[in-house]
């Protein structure tokens, strides 16, 4: 059982998981779930960059692609919710 063989298994797993995950991100109706799936996608993508021997890109993908973008998305969702609530309150008042 050589290292190369296991490397292949790792790559095939990634290559199968990434498109499925991307598809789920696109079709998911629930935005919170979609954001979390997006973060998960970013982290798996970072692993893919690692396998492509680009650790610097992997670092950027993890930090910017998954981390900062994910946190910004979550914050934007929180903001949207606050606005929606504010709007309801205005209508009632």
């Amino acid at each position: 059982m050589s290292a190369e063989w296991f490397g292949w298994i790792f790559d095939i797993l990634l290559a199968l998981a990434l498109p499925v995950l991307a598809w789920r991100v696109l079709i998911t109706r629930n935005l919170y779930q979609a954001v979390i799936l997006f973060v998960a996608f970013g982290l798996l993508m970072a692993l893919a960059w690692v396998r492509l021997e680009a650790p610097d890109v992997a670092l950027a993908e993890a930090a910017i692609g998954a981390g900062i973008t994910g946190v910004l998305f979550l914050d934007a969702l929180g903001y949207l919710r606050d606005r929606r609530r504010g709007g309801e309150a205005d209508e009632r008042g």
């Binding site: 982290l43 970072a46 690692v50 670092l59 993890a62 981390g67 994910g70 946190v71 979550l74």
Partner: peptide
Amino acid sequence: LRDVALVLALLAAFA
């Protein structure tokens, strides 16, 4: 790659 691991650990907590 250990640095990527370090960043991952930090980001998961942030998320």
